[in-house]
């Protein structure tokens, strides 16, 4: 005769994959939203991206509102 036993336990620690994914989101997201002055688009667009500053203009209002450096 067999029984099914369900064990619920609290595991300590955080899986490495979760740490990696979340740190990646943090760094990329904050850079894109708060700091990019054309850097990301310059990969495809070249120097023109630094003139257009698409990300800076697009996230402009939130940069001001959240206290990031802007103008």
């Amino acid at each position: 005769m067999s029984f099914a036993e369900q064990i619920t336990r609290a595991a300590q620690g955080v899986p490495k994959i979760a740490v990696g994914v979340l740190l990646g989101v943090l760094v990329f997201g904050i850079f894109m939203m708060g700091f990019d002055q054309g850097h990301l688009f310059s990969v495809a667009q070249g120097d023109q991206a630094y003139g257009d500053m698409w990300m800076h203009e697009f996230y402009h209002d939130m940069r001001h509102a959240a206290g990031f450096a802007c103008h």
Partner: peptide, 28 residues
């Protein structure tokens, strides 16, 4: 108007980023 749309997107990205950090710290 375009920039206001961007500010909504910006809020979501800011939330995702700070949320990721918040979740990690909370787990530990």
């Amino acid at each position: 108007l375009w920039q206001k749309g961007g500010s909504i997107a910006g809020g979501a990205v800011l939330g995702l980023s700070y949320g990721a950090l918040f979740g990690l710290v909370f787990a530990y």
